[in-house]
């Protein structure tokens, strides 16, 4: 193909006339930009189908959309407070029916925790949390060291379960602390309760544990 690129020859490897350009005709410019967002169309779109069934389906669609919004399945974002309280707002309020999922058909972890905790976001509770998690990690590390000594990769699963057990225990310890706190500060508001989900600490805990143990475990297995 290099031969074609000699002086005085066309830069194309094929006959340009084959794609519809006459001899000496100017080639179109190279397009360097994306096509327009709303290109001109040569043909107008066909009008939509109309008729009784189309109208009915349209009504069904719009009704369905509105009904869905009133169903308990429609989870709204926590609303920001309106600037002015409108008198007419009370006419427009929608009351959503309650929905109790069939828990038998759902994984257990979907169940909301029954025990309503009121663990305030006091520094104390956080502190104990941190400490216990540290202890927990220390425990884990110790266990892994033991594991390494034994050099038994097979048993790691079992160990892991044990560890999880110990974690559960320490979590229960936390709970006790929290309960004590809750007794002291029973008046705490619900909002705070939501903010300060005990699970957060649980996850932190888990993450630490996961990061540490994973590395070590790998070493143990290989």
């Amino acid at each position: 193909m290099a031969g074609n690129k000699g002086r005085g020859r066309a830069a194309y490897t094929f006959n340009i006339e084959a794609v519809g350009f006459g001899k000496g005709e100017k080639l179109p410019d190279v397009v360097l930009k994306p096509p327009p967002l709303f290109p001109d169309t040569d043909y107008k779109p066909v009008p939509l189908k109309t008729g009784e069934s189309e109208d009915y389906m349209l009504a069904l669609k719009q009704e369905l959309r509105e009904t869905m919004k009133r169903k308990p399945y429609f989870i709204e974002k926590t609303e920001e407070k309106p600037d002015i309280e409108r008198y007419s707002k009370k006419y427009m309020q929608v009351y959503k029916e309650e929905w109790i999922p069939d828990w038998r058909r759902l994984p257990r972890e979907m169940m909301p925790r029954k025990k309503c905790r009121k663990d305030p976001k006091s520094k104390k509770a956080k502190g104990t949390d941190k400490v216990s998690s540290l202890i927990n990690t220390a425990d884990v590390l110790k266990k892994i060291e033991e594991l390494e000594k034994r050099g038994d990769g097979e048993k790691s699963d079992e160990e892991n379960e044990e560890k999880e057990g110990s974690k559960e225990k320490s979590k229960e310890g936390d709970d006790d602390n929290d309960d004590d706190d809750a007794e002291q500060e029973d008046y705490d508001e619900e909002e705070q309760e939501e903010e300060n989900d005990y699970i957060n600490s649980y996850f932190e805990d888990g993450d630490d544990f996961g990061a540490d143990s994973d590395d070590n475990m790998d070493e143990a297995t290989y």
Binding site: Y73, I75, P101, R105, L106, E109, M110, P112, E194, D197, I199, F203, G206
Partner: peptide, 26 residues
């Protein structure tokens, strides 16, 4: 898993649970 969803979406656990319940229901 549930944990990863909560972590990756930065949504509260309660809301993730609710949303999953709705999605499973449908």
């Amino acid at each position: 898993p549930l944990r990863a969803i909560v972590h990756d979406t930065g949504t509260s656990l309660d809301q993730v649970k609710k949303a999953l319940c709705v999605l499973i229901q449908h």
